[in-house]
Design a protein around this nucleic acid. Structure first.
Lengths: 219, 219
DNA sequence: ATGTGTGAATGCATTCACAGCC
DNA sequence: GGCTGTGAATGCATTCACACAT
């Protein structure tokens, strides 16, 4: 019934975010239009794939010409919801947590950290960016007060599930987990995992797998 | 001709690494055998999928019983190459770089940082873990001397491509890129990208997409 | 002519269902 | 009986090829 099915494939969403970034640099460079081929090579994808990705937003280019940079940028910004600022809390202020807390890439994308939490008294009170690290006991209150919808977990593996439970109970609907464990969350709460050592391991494996072919790869 | 085609799908490799971690905790708990169902739920995947993943290594379970924890662990360790320690260099010692430099998860997985590099004189000489940050001019020498095969890039976006070029020229075959740009590398060099803000954006999008369904999700 | 938008086709990956072995 | 290993089937995602608009 509805002309545009509201479901955009996850893989596509990830690429849309990349296109948005490339478009930003193009706009800075003063470009007003781009072709799918150009945009695709800058984003490291296939041109046809890029067009298919964009087709999920409905027609947004001009045939024979290409895409208007500013127009497409606005469209992507709106679809991805980069406009509204979304409140995030971050739990576990170790090295990685500290790094994420003042990672510039987040702020410019509409993500705002409204609470940093750690269990260790040594960390509590410490300033990072323009926030002060709070004790874990304040977690629920801050989530409630700020309406934070996103939680980022950078704790040790052992306590991650407990934090996940508390975040979910507090009303956080989306969780990004950096702890090396698989988290279970109630239905309606979306958990996404980033495992840095898995990434490295895949990379290393593909590397060692490629070595044998290095000899006779002419075929 | 060859009984085991040497190509394991990338998605499978990523999960094998997860299984290996789960097996480690099981072994610590004193378990000697596991069923695919149990292992799968601990890893957050489908049991049949897990069995298919493991089938790429040839038969390694006992029908009617399950998998021997230690045996499977050895097998995975060998296939993923966790045995040999692999030398890595890390370029860009900002917050994220520093966090990765002493991230415990790497060392226990066979990855050893043998060089940390930064352009800023303020960073050079600084100790992180048991290494001292070096100037970028030493990059090629260190790669050559250590035979590092893996490079991790945590620099600002503007300089990432240049670093990528230098790493590739120096003989690094695998690059893990955290900078928010799409890197181009010569054939034979494998680049893998982790974009933290893209992860967050996907998470946020899926979250906002899920909200409408929250009303009538009973089906 | 040029480059988008999109059905059709291909290739991957996940899931199912069951045969085979313990 | 129970659980692995795996062909068959389903569902996704990518790629191709071309119609269509400018």
């Amino acid at each position: 019934m509805q002309p545009r099915p509201r479901t955009i494939p996850e893989a596509t969403v990830a690429r849309l975010a990349v296109y948005l970034r490339v478009l930003a640099t193009l706009a800075d460079g003063g470009r007003s239009t781009v072709s799918s081929g150009e945009l695709a090579s800058a984003a490291g994808v296939n041109p046809a794939g890029l067009r298919k990705d964009l087709s999920h937003l409905g027609p947004c280019g001009v045939r024979g010409v290409g895409y208007d940079v500013d127009l497409l940028r606005d469209r992507l910004t709106r679809v991805l919801g980069v406009g509204r600022s979304r409140a995030c809390v971050l739990v576990g202020i170790g090295n990685l947590g500290s790094a994420l807390a003042d990672y510039a890439g987040f702020g410019t994308r509409g993500f705002e950290f409204v609470g940093l939490f750690d269990a260790s008294p040594a960390r509590i009170g410490q300033r990072i960016g323009n926030l002060q690290v709070r004790g874990l006991d304040e977690l629920e209150d801050v989530v409630a007060a700020t309406g934070a919808s996103i939680g980022v977990i950078t704790t040790p593996a052992e306590v991650a599930q407990g934090i996940c439970d508390r975040l979910a109970a507090a009303g956080v609907g989306s969780i990004l987990n950096f702890a090396p464990v698989t988290l279970a969350a109630p239905a309606g709460v979306d958990v996404r995992k980033v495992d840095l050592s898995v990434e490295l391991q895949v990379l290393a494996f593909l590397g060692q797998q490629r070595v044998p072919a290095e000899v006779g790869e002419s075929a």
